[in-house]
């Protein structure tokens, strides 16, 4: 159902809701298109006229600085008009339903909605109800998906490693609560990564995670050994309050990425993190700022990848 919703009858990307079920052809097309947008950042005029006259609404029902800002920059570099809605102070608090909010914005001639929501499936719900000319891009929903983050991570890996077919990739940390991890796993398996590992304490892994095509490791010693790519996930502070973990210090000792543990990976391994980082919890500052880290290039590439997604869905 979701898959049909994302693609037009002739196979073009119309909404981006999840990477689950998107064919490799589309993923590769997004990465290739993003490649062309990267160099625009080095030009005198960092804009192209593709989305001139289009109205893009950023609907962030959940806070995010980095994602909202990079979507805004991406839309502006495509020459779209961007409207940021601060939902926390809006009519949703007066009891308006999500679909009424969207219907009202559609009546203001919206062409695209970029949606972040704490509830899984909210962007799908919107995509089901908008007029056919409107596209929806998921900017993170609940525990479900964060497709543009997954794509910018694929772009980063391809940029530094040239492809996916000979790579060993480890995703380390709170996979259970992470929409980013889900999107990464779907993309990496679709793009042909032969050895994909998740590394975490048992309490932070979804049940039957192996069915997603990953190898499970409970220790860093085996988990990141000989890896080409290490993706660290943020340990959300609120997880500490429950009984999933003993303490931040204990977590750092076993699953935090330190310079010592980095020696287990390949000498040219890259370290990624979707941000925001908890230094001294899941990642040591010496690693985050060290020579293996590509965490800031990820952010820059995120703009080009979001430009690619927005221009593809707007032209479908």
């Amino acid at each position: 159902m979701i898959r049909n919703l994302q693609l037009t009858p002739d196979g073009k990307l119309h909404h981006l809701l999840t990477l689950d079920g998107l064919p490799a052809r589309i993923l590769t097309q997004i990465l290739d298109t993003a490649e062309s947008f990267v160099s625009i950042g080095d030009r005198e005029v960092k804009k192209v006229p593709l989305l001139r006259g289009k109205a893009v609404f950023n609907l962030f029902f959940e806070n995010s600085t980095r994602t909202r800002t990079t979507f805004e920059i991406a839309a502006k570099r495509l020459s779209a008009d961007v409207f940021n809605l601060n939902i926390a102070t809006s009519s949703q608090n007066k009891g308006e339903t999500l679909l009424d909010t969207v219907a009202n914005l559609s009546a203001m001639q919206a062409d695209m909605f970029v949606v972040r929501h704490a509830s899984s499936g909210a962007p799908n719900l919107i995509a089901h109800h908008v007029a056919p000319h409107i596209s929806v891009v998921n900017a993170g929903d609940g525990r479900c998906a964060h497709p543009t983050q997954g794509l910018l991570d694929m772009f980063t890996i391809r940029h530094y490693k040239g492809g996916f077919h000979n790579l060993t990739v480890a995703i380390v940390g709170d996979v259970l609560h992470s929409r980013v991890a889900r999107s990464q796993i779907h993309a990496l398996t679709t793009l042909g990564c032969p050895e994909l590992r998740v590394v975490a304490p048992k309490t932070l892994l979804p049940r039957e995670v192996e069915s997603m095509g990953v190898h499970v490791h409970y220790t860093m010693e085996t988990g990141i050994k000989d890896c080409d790519v290490i993706i660290m996930l943020r340990l959300q502070n609120e997880r500490m309050q429950g009984d999933l973990l003993p303490s931040a210090g204990e977590y750092y000792k076993h699953w935090g990425l330190t310079p010592d543990k980095m020696k287990l990976a390949k000498p040219d391994a890259i370290v990624m993190h979707p941000g925001p980082m908890n230094r001294g919890v899941e990642i040591d500052s010496d690693v985050a700022d060290g020579s293996h880290s590509v965490i800031l290039p990820q952010v820059t590439f995120g703009i080009a990848v979001r430009m690619a997604v927005m221009s593809m869905v707007a032209g479908s």
Binding site: D32, S36, V48, P49, L50, S311, M312, G315, S316
Partner: peptide
């Protein structure tokens, strides 16, 4: 490809 005047009719060229 990013400057074509028929983008809104035919979309983005798949191999830009």
């Amino acid at each position: 490809a990013f400057y074509r005047d028929d983008f809104s009719r035919i979309g983005l060229h798949p191999e830009v």
